[in-house]
Structures are given as C-alpha cells and as structure tokens.
C-alpha cells in the first residue's frame, strides 16, 4: 500500500504536471454540408510557449529566505507588469508571428483551396509557469 505521503506527492504531481486546457475563443465559418459529408477533415495545430512571469516570481520568492532578494523579485515583478496591460488571452509569448503561417498551412492541407466549415479555436494548455498558447483550426476540404 502507498503511504499517505506518496499519495500526496502523486496528487500534487498530477495537479502540477497535467496541463489544464483553457478555451479562449471559438469561431465558425460558413458550413457547406456537402463538404462535411464528402470532404476530407483536417486539423491544424499551431503553438507557442507562453510564460507566466508572475508565477515564476512567486516560485522564486518561495525559494528564497532573504527578505532583500524577495523585495527585489517583487520590484522586478512590478516593473514587468507595467508593460503587460490591456485585454489578452493566455500568457505572453516572445514570438507573436507564429499565427502568420496559418494561410500557408491551410493551402498545404487543402491544395484545391475549397475549404469549408472552418472552426478556429484559441486555447491555452496551462502548466506551472509555462503554457502552450495554441491556435487550432479544424476544417473540411473538398477536392
């Protein structure tokens, strides 16, 4: 039998290491029922690593005993927060061009260009400190 300590460690690991999925936006394009029934379904997944600096600062604070270091971390955290304002979805990413490839990938998946019933999903796979900032596209291609 597992000890209660092992159970707690397993539970905490499961909580920390499993990525919770957060749905931000869903958008549907016009649906051609012919494409859904006769077309070929495709799925595109684009992802970029997001970083939650607030969480990183909190973890860093938890690992230090020095009050001075803790206050310095707090100052850095505040300084960074001045540059992160306004509405947004998910964590910040260091490359905002990862979504630009969407049209090109769509044409690769569907060379005929007859795409219908395109569902665009913006979601986050959240892990401690880091996250996967995902763009998912599901559609049907008529050849």
């Amino acid at each position: 039998m597992l000890s209660s300590r092992s159970l707690i460690i397993i539970f905490l690991s499961a909580m920390l290491l499993s990525g919770c999925s957060i749905l931000h936006k869903t958008q549907l394009s016009e649906i051609d029922s012919k494409a859904v029934t006769h077309g070929q379904r495709f799925e595109i997944l684009l992802s970029e690593t997001g970083v939650n600096l607030k969480e990183a600062a909190q973890i860093a604070k938890a690992f230090t005993n020095s009050k001075e270091t803790s206050s310095q971390i707090k100052e850095v955290e505040q300084f960074i927060s001045y540059f992160q304002m306004g509405p947004r979805t998910g964590n910040m990413v260091f490359n905002d061009r990862y979504a630009d490839a969407v049209p090109k990938i769509l044409l690769t998946k569907c060379p005929s260009g007859h795409i219908s019933s395109l569902m665009s999903i913006r979601e986050t796979a959240k892990y401690p400190v880091v996250s996967g900032e995902i763009i998912k596209l599901i559609g049907y291609c008529l050849n």
Binding site: S18, S21, T26, S33, V36, T37, S117, M119
Partner: peptide
C-alpha cells in the same frame, strides 16, 4: 479541464440540420 474537444461536434450537428445546403 484537459481538452476542449467538446466543441468539435457542432459542425456535424449544424450540417446534419441543413443537408444539401449551406
């Protein structure tokens, strides 16, 4: 919540309600 796959079925559902149309 470990996935958002529940939204996928909507397209088929709408297409079923509108056969031979858009």
């Amino acid at each position: 919540n470990f996935n958002n796959d529940y939204v996928d079925a909507m397209v088929q559902d709408l297409a079923r309600q509108c056969p031979n149309g858009k």
